[in-house]
Design a protein around this nucleic acid. Sequence first.
DNA 1: TTGTGTTTTACGACCTCC
DNA 2: GGAGGTCGTAAAACACAA
Length: 296
Amino acid sequence: MDRVRLIFDSSSSRGRHGQRMLLLGGGGGGGSSPVFGGARSALAAAEGANKRRPFFTSPEELLEEEYYYDEQQPDKKRRLSPEQVRLLERSFEAENKLEPERKSELARKLGLQPRQVAVWFQNRRARWKTKQLEHDFDRLKSSYGSLLSDHDSLLKENDRLRSQVISLTEKLQSRTAASAGAAGIAGTKSDVQAAASVADPATLAVQTKAEDRLSAGSGGSAVVDGEAAKQLVDSSEVSYFPEGYHCMGPVDGGRVHSEEDDVSDEGCNYYSDGMFAAEHHHQDEVDAQLDWWVWS
DNA sequence: TTGTGTTTTACGACCTCC
DNA sequence: GGAGGTCGTAAAACACAA
């Protein structure tokens, strides 16, 4: 009690920066610690019950701290000086975790309590993490943007191919109708298909692709199936992104390459599980449409 | 000057690791 | 169990527009 008053009496005002902290408040979260005991009650009496409690844990500790905080205004939270912050920043850049020796050394150099140094590092790591999250968010956003434009161009390509199929089908139908009329016999569906494969290389190409797809279940296809791609991605050893995100290469011809195609993250598009499912679903839809056009 | 939003400092609660 | 981490939050300090 006497010690606390003694320190208060020795305090004096200083400039905004370069001030040292005498008293720090009691936990923002509310709960007041029962640890402080006599010194705290003295402070409460002197400063009012709603003030933050000092962080010193005992009057003995207060005695020690007097050397550090001998010229400080009482009961005020002080910012660290630019010089102190500079040194802390440099130290943080070198290593963002704080071993006890380094903490004591820094505290000694800066004229701070080791506890203050530790808290500063904790807060600094939190700020760094926030920045990282923002950075990750920006990356995901731009990734999503490029996926969206890929998706749009695929839709256009799909439309173009669809009209092509329609026009070829019409041509084929008129041609077979003409030849049937000439022969006086109506052709069957298999006749039409047979005629198409001979008459039209474009239709033949579409049919061939469809057959390839039917036989792809054996794993003979060079194109990685959606689920297989997901497995490949999931089995990759190290990912910058947290669990639940999948790196997938640029979309190529309506197919999505797996991460294995390119070991680096360059050009990767990151999907969350949900996005992956949606994209996979979209792939299925495209496949279904293609099948419908081929076989109907 | 004052009201308001942001940043910084500090804490308690809880978690993990040794 | 203790040390040190993260997370969420309070409150002081600060910045800035009106």
